[in-house]
Design a protein around this nucleic acid. Structure first.
Lengths: 120, 120
DNA sequence: AGGGCTAGGTGTAGTATACACACAGCTCAG
DNA sequence: CTGAGCTGTGTGTATACTACACCTAGCCCT
């Protein structure tokens, strides 16, 4: 079961952070190691507390590659099947900076809204 | 121009915060005044820095009403057309609490991810 | 030999987004 | 007295995204 324990979790909010942020979060992950692959990136994102859909991760990475933000190559693993390893392109590097800025802005907007709610 | 200045802004990220948060943000706005309407709520959300789609706001409010989270009634205005005023139902009150919690969690997750990126 | 983890995918129904467009009341300038 | 601009609420729709089911396959351990 790749996509986790479906039946127990699903009610209405399967993941709190929308996948709209998926691109940005994947960029974040890639900026740390500058050489990673889908499964590993997903683990990183999960470590922040969100549950994401592997299918979406793989699709998004492909999409980013098609837009020349990433390049990929196959690599073998010692303890499992081969991996498609991604690297950020120069073009992707610009997009990465934008992505981080967007995440920061999003966080600030959320904070502003919540702060406003906290002080009645 | 209801839906804002299309041509100048739009590149790839029309609004930084995904509309997935629209429901939650509208709840936040309603929790402050406990009696508001689409246009006003949109203004509030905009004050946090995001540009939102009025069409989406009206549709979301309707949807929330259909789910018995809100009730609405028409009210006249001194300086403009009538307004459809919304109020939170008891059921909506629970959902509101959940919504705020979700926003908080989302902010924390974003913060975690960004912090991780800041400390290499 | 089978279960569980790692790894990467496809298919698709249903939903959400973004944007164009419509309708209408009010106010104020010209 | 007409039109521009703001307030206010909607509908229509092509396209994109989500969520979930499902598939293949290597490796390790019992």
């Amino acid at each position: 079961m790749t996509t986790t324990n479906s039946s127990e979790v699903s009610q209405t909010a399967p993941s709190v952070l929308p996948r709209r942020f998926l691109r940005q979060l994947l960029f974040l992950g890639l900026s740390r190691s500058d050489r990673s692959y889908g499964y590993e990136l997903a683990e990183a994102v999960r470590s922040y507390g969100l549950n994401i859909d592997m299918a979406g991760v793989y699709r998004e990475l492909r999409s980013m590659e098609q837009k020349d933000l990433l390049t990929s190559s196959w690599e073998s693993s010692d303890n499992g099947p081969d991996r498609r390893v991604y690297m950020v392109t120069p073009l992707g590097s610009d997009a990465l900076a934008t992505a981080v800025a967007e995440l920061r802005l999003a966080r600030d907007q959320l904070s502003a809204a919540l702060e406003d709610a906290d002080t009645p």
